[in-house]
Design a protein around this nucleic acid. Structure first.
Lengths: 189, 189
DNA sequence: CTACAAAACTAACAATTGTTAGTTTACTTG
DNA sequence: CAAGTAAACTAACAATTGTTAGTTTTGTAG
């Protein structure tokens, strides 16, 4: 682990504020006040407000893409892959609740990096869809509308950041297991 | 149906813009341009930007609360109630995709009406939780962590607005049925 | 103690924000 | 046509926005 730079602190604080009010509603003066300094001082460490958002979102999006790549190339069954995807989301989300808020809600303000982000997201969804389709083909997964399944599961996983902080002890293993149960087997045997 | 006033048009246009960029990033000049008039002219019909957001969100929140009240007081089984809640979300969301975006993402900018909104939301979630708990008690629903079930289902339903526009023919009946299948019985028999 | 770099500061900027005041245009009704 | 009202306009405001320039303070290594 590299030591945390002042820039890292700023980005972390910004992510927290972005989660509360959204990127656009947070001013550089808000951010400076939260850091205990003046707005102009922020620019000794970062180049622009824009760049902060980019740093928050792109690194997260790439982490998801890398995780998916690993899962995709594994030899696991479709259901196992699905469980691995669930665990991936639980782990990334619990490690970066604030960043996940920006990833979900502020990506449209990315500007120069918007296209790249959208490409990562499309690729991720496509890989997710393939896992489900393979599962249906192999009779591991019921032959329901794949888009409905994809949407339902992905919506839940993408909202994890809203929910995790409310639970005191984030036992990620326990949470992954419970989520897998609910998402895969439903709530009614 | 009352005839649509100019104010209604403004609110509808605003909701559309709010969905694209979020409340804070949409300026009154953006909204005016989308309406084909000048920013100052908006104030012949509305009192403030704030009020537009309030009109969008509160009416939706109240619609959900009324729907839940109806479902709660029905004689249906727990699973049937759950199906009714799913249908409620599908119908409200498909009738007001843009407003649902504000409801989900811009509620924190409500200011004077924030407390009221939060009360409605808490009440709604509590009613939802009760349906699940009753279902578990009556052996209609598996004895899994109720909070995980609540979170998972609600996350999916709250994200509907993101997904519905992508599907050409929004056959709400079909969608409700498929969603019920996935949310209640999972994806793997 | 000196020198240097990191990181804070003050002051200011040009642009943009929501909103108001006052005026003109367009439409409807008698 | 006259009068009234609904809805647009122009012009401006005070506040806030992200950011820059230039300067001072703070901490560290020789």
């Amino acid at each position: 682990m590299k030591p945390e730079t002042r820039k890292d602190e700023i980005i972390k604080t910004a992510a927290k504020l972005f989660k509360e009010k959204g990127y656009s509603a947070v001013t550089m003066r808000d951010l400076a006040k939260a850091m205990g300094i003046k707005a102009a001082s922020l620019y000794n460490h970062i180049n622009s407000k824009q760049e902060i958002l980019k740093d928050i979102i792109i690194s997260l999006a790439e982490t998801f893409t890398e995780g998916m790549k690993r899962i995709k190339s594994s030899e696991a069954s479709s259901i196992e892959k699905l469980e691995q995807v669930i665990t991936l989301h639980v782990e990334i989300s619990s490690n970066n609740i604030y960043g996940m808020a920006s990833l979900n809600n502020d990506w449209m303000h990315l500007e120069e990096k918007l296209e790249y982000y959208l490409a990562l997201r499309s690729g991720y969804e496509e890989d997710f869809r393939n896992i489900l389709e393979e599962g249906v083909k192999g009779n591991e997964i019921d032959n329901i509308n794949v888009e409905v399944m994809l949407f339902s599961i992905l919506s839940t996983l993408r909202s994890l950041y809203l929910w995790i902080p409310n639970k005191e002890d984030v036992n990620t293993q326990e949470l992954s297991k419970n989520l897998s149960k609910v998402l895969i087997h439903g709530i009614h045997a």
